[in-house]
Design a protein around this nucleic acid. Structure first.
Lengths: 137, 137
DNA sequence: TCGTCTTACGTGTATATGCACCCAAATCAT
DNA sequence: ATGATTTGGGTGCATATACACGTAAGACGA
């Protein structure tokens, strides 16, 4: 593989590699990393409007909507209108929580692999990535 | 946006942010960052079989095929069979080279923005990402 | 040389991602 | 109250990404 000086290409490439690792780990429960990450986020913030969940995830609202569709089809999440009839509340179902419980050790396996590989560089990496996430202004 | 301990989520998030920055910069020539990166790679390695270009780019062969389609439609690249009738040689067209010339200062603008933001951390970041790219083994 | 194995590709399918544009509900100013 | 504005969502479209599967051409051994 050619080396690149392009920060964007470099980051995209590494993200793909890491995604493949986590996807492999999650394969037994038939979920992708973005999907599983969504369940984890929902668990943390609880039932929330679509836009709130999107903001929490750092995803575009429309992207989130599309990502939710297969999860709603497989009943891992459900949605209902809020008091404000415009909002759509997204919520974890019982099946979703079970899936989370099943997937967590699988996710931890990939995560441990990364943490071990990164060692002490992990803090530095996260610090740099924090800065990078704020760039688009 | 919620913070996350997940290395995968973190990397994907930053990659999206940086991609948006480069995409904005490249908007005047109507190309995405992955597309432009492909032209740059082609320029570096010259006319090559699909699989060679895929390996150089660190992309799946089938992903590359799909990414090439709009570029071939807009005549920025062309393809022809090689001596070995199985291979498909991908090549930059004149229009492709012109587009590269037009886009390069735009790409440099985004790249400079990143380099300035990262400062001395850039080397460390690249070193860490190099290690990360080798993880899936 | 004739089958067999390998290699290079293409396509079907599915998810990930976000912009432009549209609709409906809530809010606000007059 | 009512018309204008803002806010929350959904969809069409396009690209990005890769796995599974199928096909054709080259390579190679018996």
């Amino acid at each position: 593989m050619l080396s690149t000086a392009c920060v964007c290409t470099k980051l995209r490439r590494s993200a793909r590699a890491v995604t493949a690792l986590y996807d492999d780990a999650l394969a037994p429960i038939g979920m992708s990393t973005p999907q599983f990450a969504l369940l984890r986020t929902l668990q943390r913030i609880g039932a929330s409007p679509l836009s709130t969940l999107a903001a929490a995830s750092g995803l575009d609202r429309t992207t989130l909507n599309r990502t939710l569709q297969p999860l709603e089809t497989s009943k891992l999440i459900c949605s209902r209108p809020g008091a404000d009839q415009r909002v759509r509340i997204i919520e974890l179902t019982g099946a979703g929580m079970s899936k989370l419980a099943l997937g967590t050790p699988l996710w931890e396996q990939a995560q441990r692999r990364m943490v071990d590989t990164l060692g002490a560089d992990r803090d530095q990496l996260f610090t740099i990535l924090d800065r990078i996430e704020e760039i688009r202004a």
